[in-house]
Amino acid sequence: MQSSLLEPASAAWRDTLARCRHDCHHTPGWHSAAERSDNGSAAAVLVTQGEHRLLVPLVRRPLAAGSWDASSAYGYAGPVLSSGAPAGFADAALAAGIALLRKHGCVSWFIRLHPLLNADWHSRLGQVVEHAGTVSVDLTKSAQRLWQETQARHKLGINRARRAGVTARLDRDFATLPRFIELYNHTMTRLDASPYYFFDAQYYRTLVRGLGDDLLLFVAEEGDCVIGSALFTVARGTGIMQYHLSGWDWDYRHRQPTKTLIHAAREWGRIHGMHYLHLGGGLGSSHDSLYEFKRGFSPDTHVFRTQRLVVDADRYVALSGGDRGTLARLDGFFPAYRRPGARFGPPLAQTCHEVAMSATAESRRTGT
């Protein structure tokens, strides 16, 4: 097996994705933007054996004395595996990737598994932890069937907004991006979000430049006023849309623009041959208000899981205060040395969907 650590500009990263089923969250463009939001540097582990490939994108975050740890960027950038790989290849390749990261000074590796693409992922390495569910919309269904599966409260809100003159459209040129940023930041401020949930202008410029036509900005308008906006990503090869960020005008909250935006996005995806609109999960529970809001658009659910890998056991124990028992407790806050109040503080790149931090992350990101 051959293993390498790729930079976002590497042609091998893009070539591997072209040969494997993947999502937008696996792309170099997504990770280049994540460098700013997650305070790290983007990379990807590539392991090859003949025609078989394993690719795992990550963000490197600095620790002490030249060491660092790895985490998935915000989203679901789990392992990408070439089709037809023999049994045992995935774990063998992942083990080779761990050895490569250890050689480069990595201490631990936190991987967010993709609820759709990694549904069958099983590994004997580290620990795979199951979290709350996520929701997706099956865009291969007819418009009539999707509307039938929409809960009555969502239908009511969408119809009321429509009667009031609210419309939704795709802003292909991102002309309203400044308005989106304004709405999103105001929404985060109202939710008393931490600084992590605010992005500078360069983040959005990098995202637009890096994703190109795979980033969509939908806007909801009443008259000439944009009352809500939402960003979605698309992976055309696998037909997956992802709900990323959204915000709304507080003065128009009675119009419930987020419902109109999601309805418009799923119809766009259905017409354009996409297979899934993945809305993500809730506040950390499978029955909380955000999760139930998303369930209002679809009955289809998935299991979200994470994989935790200790790359350098001695360094991990040292950073965790010398307690070797932490090596057997990977299902709690991971890595242990980044738990709140610990030496290195909260894990900036792990806030969304992590066990202890997921209660506010996605609701703040999506503004629902």
Rank of each mutant, 00 (worst) to 15 (best):
236 R>D: 12
58 L>D: 00
219 V>P: 00
276 Y>S: 11
145 R>A: 14
221 E>A: 10
22 H>V: 06
57 P>Q: 12
279 L>N: 08
204 Y>P: 06
77 A>F: 13
64 A>E: 14
160 R>V: 06
118 N>Q: 06
195 P>I: 11
177 L>Y: 02
221 E>N: 08
11 A>C: 10
278 H>F: 15
299 P>V: 10
239 G>F: 06
277 L>G: 04
180 F>T: 02
18 A>D: 15
211 L>R: 06
97 G>A: 03
83 S>E: 15
105 G>S: 05
9 A>T: 13
226 V>H: 03
221 E>K: 04
336 A>K: 01
97 G>V: 00
72 S>E: 09
122 H>S: 11
156 L>V: 10
341 G>N: 09
53 R>Y: 15
232 F>S: 02
325 G>T: 03
247 G>P: 07
3 S>K: 05
56 V>L: 07
335 P>V: 13
315 R>A: 06
31 H>K: 04
297 F>S: 13
256 Q>D: 01
18 A>Q: 09
238 T>E: 09
61 R>E: 12
126 G>A: 13
194 S>G: 07
114 H>L: 12
134 T>N: 02
351 T>L: 09
275 H>P: 06
204 Y>S: 08
94 L>T: 01
292 E>T: 11
56 V>E: 07
365 R>S: 01
86 P>T: 08
118 N>D: 14
208 V>G: 01
313 A>F: 01
146 L>C: 03
309 L>V: 04
276 Y>H: 13
237 G>Y: 13
207 L>F: 05
280 G>P: 12
